[in-house]
Computed example of a mutant assay.
Amino acid sequence: MLLLIPNVLDAATLARCSDLLDQADWTDGRVTAGSQAATVKNNLQLPEASPFAQQLRASVLEALSKNPAFFSAALPRRIYPLLFNRYGGEANSFGNHVDNAIRTHPASAQHVRTDLSFTLFLNDPADYDGGELIIEDGMGGRAVKLPAGHLILYPSYSVHRVEAVTRGTRLACFSWLESMVREPQQRELLYELDMSIVALRGEQGETDTTVRLTSCYHNLMRMWATV
């Protein structure tokens, strides 16, 4: 499932992130790439321990924690500490690759199974040419280039790439997460059920039907979730 989640960041948070990104020092993005990805990765990243990265991470995590669509679709158990990248100039692309199945955070030694990946766009698409995130889905690649503050959530097993940026600079936050529900089909069923309950409750209020469906949702979570 590919899911676009709009307006994860509001205008004030985006402005604060933009100020921090303007002040930050960047390093070679290959520092977090696996052996295959490192051969095709050509971008810049903020060092994970950078104070700028820490402030950005806190702002984005706060926004994600308040976003019901993100939680419903991802059911996050663990999120790898958020990273921030920059494409432009000579460091401008990332060829076809698959994300590592397990990410191990060097500071904490905590392992995260990468069930889902996400990219949160941090500047306006008019600021740059190129830079599309291409996600292969078996029917040709889907090109994703979103407004600032919008997020795309997609399976980590997907082959994907970032096209070359030919003008300007592309800024984004990205990471991987381990879901409480490992199986993609089960996650998708739970998401569809949750969204249907929300819609039904909005149309009809709290009825016997919404209560029964909510009970089904939580009983399925009890069957499938690992916490």
Score class of each variant (00 low, 15 high):
residue 2 L to P: 13
residue 5 I to V: 15
residue 5 I to T: 13
residue 8 V to K: 03
residue 9 L to I: 09
residue 12 A to W: 12
residue 13 T to K: 08
residue 17 C to D: 05
residue 20 L to P: 06
residue 25 D to W: 01
residue 25 D to I: 05
residue 26 W to M: 11
residue 27 T to D: 12
residue 27 T to P: 08
residue 28 D to I: 06
residue 30 R to E: 06
residue 35 S to H: 15
residue 37 A to E: 14
residue 37 A to H: 06
residue 40 V to Y: 06
residue 40 V to T: 12
residue 40 V to E: 03
residue 41 K to Q: 11
residue 41 K to R: 13
residue 41 K to T: 08
residue 41 K to V: 06
residue 42 N to R: 12
residue 44 L to N: 01
residue 45 Q to K: 07
residue 46 L to R: 00
residue 47 P to E: 03
residue 50 S to V: 00
residue 50 S to F: 00
residue 50 S to K: 01
residue 52 F to N: 10
residue 59 S to H: 11
residue 62 E to C: 07
residue 63 A to W: 02
residue 63 A to V: 03
residue 64 L to N: 03
residue 69 A to D: 14
residue 69 A to E: 13
residue 72 S to N: 11
residue 75 L to P: 05
residue 75 L to C: 09
residue 79 I to F: 03
residue 82 L to Y: 04
residue 86 R to V: 00
residue 86 R to Y: 00
residue 87 Y to I: 00
residue 98 V to H: 05
residue 102 I to K: 07
residue 105 H to E: 11
residue 106 P to K: 07
residue 110 Q to D: 12
residue 111 H to P: 02
residue 119 T to S: 02
residue 121 F to D: 00
residue 121 F to H: 05
residue 122 L to P: 00
residue 132 E to C: 04
residue 133 L to I: 02
residue 140 G to K: 10
residue 141 G to I: 05
residue 142 R to E: 11
residue 145 K to A: 06
residue 150 H to W: 15
residue 151 L to V: 11
residue 153 L to W: 04
residue 155 P to V: 07
residue 158 S to C: 15
residue 159 V to C: 09
residue 161 R to N: 14
residue 162 V to G: 00
residue 162 V to L: 09
residue 162 V to P: 01
residue 166 T to K: 08
residue 166 T to W: 08
residue 169 T to W: 05
residue 170 R to L: 01
residue 170 R to T: 00
residue 171 L to A: 05
residue 172 A to R: 01
residue 174 F to P: 01
residue 175 S to N: 11
residue 175 S to L: 02
residue 177 L to P: 02
residue 178 E to G: 04
residue 180 M to R: 14
residue 182 R to H: 12
residue 182 R to I: 08
residue 184 P to A: 12
residue 187 R to H: 08
residue 188 E to N: 13
residue 189 L to N: 09
residue 189 L to G: 12
residue 197 I to T: 06
residue 198 V to I: 15
residue 202 G to Y: 11
residue 203 E to I: 14
residue 210 T to Y: 03
residue 212 R to T: 13
residue 213 L to C: 08
residue 213 L to P: 02
residue 216 C to Y: 08
residue 216 C to K: 13
residue 217 Y to A: 08
residue 217 Y to M: 13
residue 220 L to T: 10
residue 221 M to T: 13
residue 221 M to S: 08
residue 225 A to N: 10
residue 227 V to Y: 15
